[in-house]
C-alpha cells in the first residue's frame, strides 16, 4: 500500500548551514508518528517541509504518492507554481505552536474559511461541517467567539478543527502544546489522542515524551539533521540503542 507520507533523502539548507542532512522515513495510513529530539535537531524544519512552508534542496517528499513542491523540467529542478503548491499544501493539515488563528474572525469562520474559499463548498454546508468539527473538539458553544476571547487551549482546539475540517490526508502538529499554560496542555493532548484513536494519520513534533510514548505507532529521534533512531515507542523509550538517544531521554522529563 502507498504510504501517506514518504520522505526520500531530504536535504535542506539555511544558507550555508545544512539543517536536514538526508532524511528518509514513511508514514503509513492511520499511523501516528512522533518526531522527538533536542532543539535545533531539525524536527520542526522537517515537519514544515512536509507542507512546503520550507523549501528543500534535495530529495523528495511524497504525500499520498504524489511528489510535492518541485518538478523536473528539461533536467532542471524547479519549484511548481503557486496554485499547485496551494493545492498540495491542502493535502496536509497543520497545527502551529502559536495557534495562528485569524483574530478578526469568529471560531466558526476560522474553520469555514478554507472550506468555502479553497474547497469551494457552499456556505451552509461549510457551516454544518464547521459546527461538526467544533463540536468534535469541544468548542461548539464558543463558535461565535473571537480568538482573543478564548484561552490558549481553546484556541488550539479551534486550530485543530480548522486544519482537520479540510479533510487532509495527514495532520501535522508542530509542538502543539509548547505555548500553552501547563493546565491547558491536557485538553489539547486529549483532543489529539482521540483523533489518533479514530485512525487519523498524524505526524507530531513534540516535547511531550509521555504522550509520544502512549499515542505513537512509531517514534523518530532526530539528532543534528539526521534520524538517529526510529522504531516502535516501547523499543525507543525502553531500550534506546544510540548513546545520543539514551542521553536525550535522561534529560527529558516524563
Amino acid at each position: 500500500m502507498t504510504p501517506i507520507v514518504e520522505v526520500r533523502a531530504l536535504h535542506k539548507r539555511f544558507g550555508e548551514l545544512e539543517v536536514l542532512k538526508g532524511i528518509d522515513f514513511t508514514v503509513a495510513e492511520g499511523e501516528v508518528v512522533s518526531v522527538i529530539g533536542a532543539s535545533g535537531s531539525g524536527k520542526t524544519t522537517l515537519l514544515r517541509c512536509l507542507n512546503l512552508l520550507e523549501e528543500f534542496h534535495q530529495g523528495e517528499v511524497l504525500i499520498g504518492g504524489e511528489a510535492i513542491g518541485y518538478h523536473t523540467r528539461r533536467g532542471q529542478r524547479a519549484r511548481v507554481g503557486e496554485h499547485e503548491i496551494a493545492r498540495q499544501r491542502a493535502m496536509t493539515g497543520m497545527v502551529f505552536q502559536s495557534f495562528n488563528l485569524f483574530p478578526h474572525m469568529s471560531a466558526l469562520d476560522n474553520v469555514t474559511l478554507g472550506l468555502t474559499k479553497v474547497r469551494g463548498m457552499p456556505k451552509n454546508q461549510a457551516i454544518e461541517l464547521g459546527d461538526h468539527w467544533l463540536e468534535r473538539v469541544g468548542m461548539l458553544e464558543r463558535r461565535d467567539y473571537r480568538p482573543s476571547q478564548l484561552s490558549g487551549g481553546q484556541q488550539q482546539r479551534v486550530a485543530i478543527a480548522r486544519a482537520i475540517a479540510m479533510n487532509p490526508k495527514v495532520m501535522l502538529f508542530d509542538e502543539a502544546t509548547s505555548a500553552l499554560d501547563p493546565e491547558r496542555v491536557g485538553e489539547v493532548l486529549e483532543t489529539i489522542r482521540s483523533l489518533a484513536q479514530e485512525g487519523m494519520t498524524m505526524v507530531l513534533v513534540t516535547h511531550e515524551m509521555r504522550f509520544a510514548r502512549d499515542v505513537s505507532d512509531k517514534v523518530v529521534f532526530m539528532e543534528d539533521g539526521r534520524i538517529a533512531e526510529q522504531g516502535p515507542p516501547e523499543r525507543l523509550f525502553m531500550h534506546p540503542e544510540s548513546p545520543r538517544l539514551q542521553a536525550f531521554l535522561k534529560t527529558s522529563s516524563f
Binding site: R89, L113, K117, V118
Partner: peptide, 20 residues
C-alpha cells in the same frame, strides 16, 4: 504566522491577502 496559517489551509497569496 498569519500568512503561514493561510498557506497551510491551501490559500494562494491573493486569498491570504484578501481574507486574512
Amino acid at each position: 504566522g498569519q500568512i503561514e496559517a493561510g498557506r497551510a489551509i491551501g490559500l494562494t497569496f491573493g486569498g491570504i491577502f484578501r481574507y486574512i
